[in-house]
Design a protein around this nucleic acid. Structure first.
Length: 242
DNA sequence: GCAAAGATTTGCT
DNA sequence: GCAAATCTTTGCC
């Protein structure tokens, strides 16, 4: 089989899929790549394979942030597909969503877990930064601004590469995503954070559907609809391991 | 203007 | 297995 031309542009994730029904988009996002371009927060490119997502569909979905209509927080959900929607939960964790369907219908897919493929070290550093474990050294008198001086992170429990982004808050932390990313176009190859399609020929994977996590307040049927989709058997799925 | 809960993660009991 | 950490957004007075 011929080697792929390395100069070829990365396979973009098609916006047309995100513009379609949200459950179809969610299914298609499994296996796709979440890509973080190199920047100040991490010197290397970070890439992860999406293995767990949840769909939030329409104003009628009582588990969705769109349930109370457009607000300052959720406004981007009512906009065009492909935009990032990032919010803060529990006052400390960020969650990354991909906006789906056509404006003004509000819908999005929450990226709950990815399998690291590139840049695991940068992901570890970003997690430490997000959790405040590695802090900038205190300014010493007039010699301020030595941004490279960092207090080493205290010892912490070992985390396997596959578990670095095994949860929605961890995905955002590992990829240095926060609310400032809300509204950026995830289908634009120039965006610092973007989606890419899985390489052609990558083998297919089994998918399972389960109820969504942590939305019991929504009541039925919303609490039970199987709108959480996972790649069967992935070591990077959210939740505590046995 | 204030009180309550949240699309989570972690560490300790 | 349970509770703390932490702050924005929403709901009600």
């Amino acid at each position: 089989m011929p080697a792929q031309d390395p100069r070829r542009a990365p396979p973009l994730f098609p916006r047309s899929i995100l513009a379609g029904p949200t459950l179809d988009a969610a299914r298609a996002l499994l296996g796709a790549r979440l890509v973080r371009a190199p920047d100040d927060s991490g010197g290397t490119r970070r890439v992860g394979r999406i293995v767990e997502v949840e769909a939030y569909i329409g104003e009628e979905d009582r588990a969705s942030h769109a349930r109370m209509g457009p607000t300052a927080r959720n406004g981007v959900m009512f906009g065009p597909p492909g935009a990032a929607y990032v919010y803060l939960v529990y006052g400390m964790h960020h969650c990354l969503n991909v906006v789906t369907e056509h404006a003004p219908r509000p819908a999005a897919v929450l990226i709950r877990a990815v399998e690291p493929l590139e840049g695991a070290d940068a992901m570890r550093a970003a997690r430490d930064a997000a959790s405040g474990r590695a802090r900038p050294a205190p300014a010493a008198g007039e010699a301020r601004g030595t941004a490279s001086a960092m207090i080493p992170a205290p010892a912490r429990r070992y985390v396997a590469d596959a578990r670095l982004a095994a949860g929605p808050g961890l995905v955002a932390a590992a990829f240095s995503v926060d609310r400032s990313h809300t509204g950026i176009d995830l289908c634009d190859p120039a965006s610092p954070l973007r989606l890419e399609a899985a390489p052609a020929g990558e083998r297919t994977w089994a998918v399972e559907a389960t109820p969504r996590i942590g939305i019991g307040y929504a009541g039925e049927p919303w609490a039970s609809v199987p709108w959480r989709l996972i790649v069967t058997g992935s070591p990077a799925l959210s939740g505590r391991r046995r």
